[in-house]
């Protein structure tokens, strides 16, 4: 399997570390909403089909990448830098 790293290009999956479900939102650090924290830490969407997920190019540029990948076929549909994405919808500094 190849993961397209926006910086390094297509690289073998062995260079990457999987960081899981990219649909989770970390609550505001001072939030005391237990349910929201639980959801962030423990609950996963786990779809059969397109999955938005985070990979780190740990054996390469070490950037985190948001990848949309089909879990039925392993075909990668899209990838982008996690940092760019989170910048775009920047939340309040926390």
């Amino acid at each position: 399997m190849l993961i397209p790293c926006p910086y390094c290009g297509q690289r073998d999956v062995s260079e990457f570390t999987y960081q899981g479900d990219g649909n989770r939102t970390r609550p505001n650090p001072s939030s005391t909403d237990r349910a929201a924290w639980n959801a962030y830490v423990y609950d996963r969407t786990n779809p059969a089909g397109e999955h938005r997920e985070i990979w780190q190019h740990s054996g390469g540029c070490r950037a985190h990448i948001v990848v949309v990948r089909n879990t039925l076929t392993h075909a990668v549909v899209a990838s982008s830098m996690a940092r760019a994405r989170t910048r775009a919808d920047r939340r309040e500094p926390t």
């Binding site: 899981g20 479900d21 423990y42 609950d43 996963r44 969407t45 786990n46 779809p47 059969a48 879990t71």
Partner: peptide, 19 residues
């Protein structure tokens, strides 16, 4: 392995499980 899929049919779309 299909727990998430079947639970989704029951209206539960997140589980503490990854396949």
């Amino acid at each position: 392995g299909s727990t998430g899929q079947v639970m989704r049919l029951a209206g539960i779309d997140r589980m503490p499980i990854e396949s």
